[in-house]
Amino acid sequence: MTALKRLVLPYPLLSLSLVVMWLLLQQSVGLGHILLGSVIAIGAGKAMQALQPEPPRVRNIGAILKLIALVVLDVLRSNIAVATITLSGRRHQPRPAFILMPLELTDHLGLAILSMIVTATPGSAWLEYSPTRNTVLIHVLDLVDEASWVGTVKHNYERLLMEIFQ
């Protein structure tokens, strides 16, 4: 069973999301589209196998849902904050700053997701990751307190991502 699974569906999540994307693009759930989408998804899974990425070890579905909720709330809050800064004119100049943040997370997929979250949040941007020292350079648009900012990111995101991937 596991051998068959490895042969046909090496990356089940990838294949499933490709089928869903195919059906969304076709805007139909007809049998023909499902079959065609499945053929493409299985082919893409095989192609992915040739690239041999390390398979993600995802566990802890609860932590994933918590992470999504946290990200949506934080992005919304940060949207409002940046919009206020843009509107506030000369009275309130933002205090941009570079932060060098040490990380404990080492999993590649976890780091990729953390960088996505940090960059997608309007107030902060992930600039450069150094794998040798495991630090990351982050630019923050309006920095009030560096220690508390780093603490929030580490406490909220890094802890959750470590729960999911490590």
Partner: peptide, 19 residues
């Protein structure tokens, strides 16, 4: 258009691309 240096400007388009 308003922010004065590049690294500040890079934050701005994410408003449009997120919410």
């Amino acid at each position: 258009a308003r922010f004065t240096d590049f690294y500040s400007r890079i934050h701005a388009p994410t408003l449009g691309t997120s919410f």
